[in-house]
């Protein structure tokens, strides 16, 4: 039961982290760096965005759930289960970020989910 919660934690925190970071980085906008002043301006704009810290906190929570799950179960159980996060991310991108996900992108995402599952499952 604990392992199920941890895997759910990896998927949910990871997906929210990606969604929040994507939303935040698009709001920050132009990140092109041509000189040292641009670099400081970019770092400054990213560092004051609350979404950046929420996103990184979610990624950190996903990472620690992963470490805890790996200390309890095999990679061949944990990694295939987390391949579901590709699907969850695309659903979130479509409905929360309003991205245009066409049929080709959906088919590709499902194939990658299956591929990641096959890559890590134990036979």
């Amino acid at each position: 039961m604990k392992i199920v919660l941890l895997i759910a934690g990896i998927i949910v925190f990871g997906t929210f982290g990606d969604l929040i970071l994507s939303h935040t980085m698009k709001r920050i906008g132009d990140l092109s760096v041509r000189n040292a002043r641009d670099l400081f301006s970019v770092i400054g704009r990213v560092a004051v965005a609350p979404g950046f810290f929420f996103g990184v906190a979610c990624m950190a929570a996903a990472f620690f759930s992963l470490l805890a799950a790996l200390s309890m179960a095999d990679v061949s159980l944990v990694e295939p289960a987390t391949s579901l996060s590709f699907v969850l991310n695309t659903i979130g991108a479509k409905f929360l970020l309003k991205e245009n996900v066409d049929r080709s992108r959906w088919t590709g995402t499902l194939l990658i989910t299956l591929g990641a599952y096959l890559l890590f499952i134990k036979y």
Binding site: N100, S104, L111, T113, G115, Y123
Partner: peptide, 20 residues
């Protein structure tokens, strides 16, 4: 099976990369 997984991922990446 891992080779099969690699093939699925390669095809999936190709499909996503050519999406509009």
């Amino acid at each position: 099976p891992r080779w099969a997984g690699i093939a699925c991922i390669a095809l999936g990446v190709y499909l996503v990369a050519r999406s509009e």
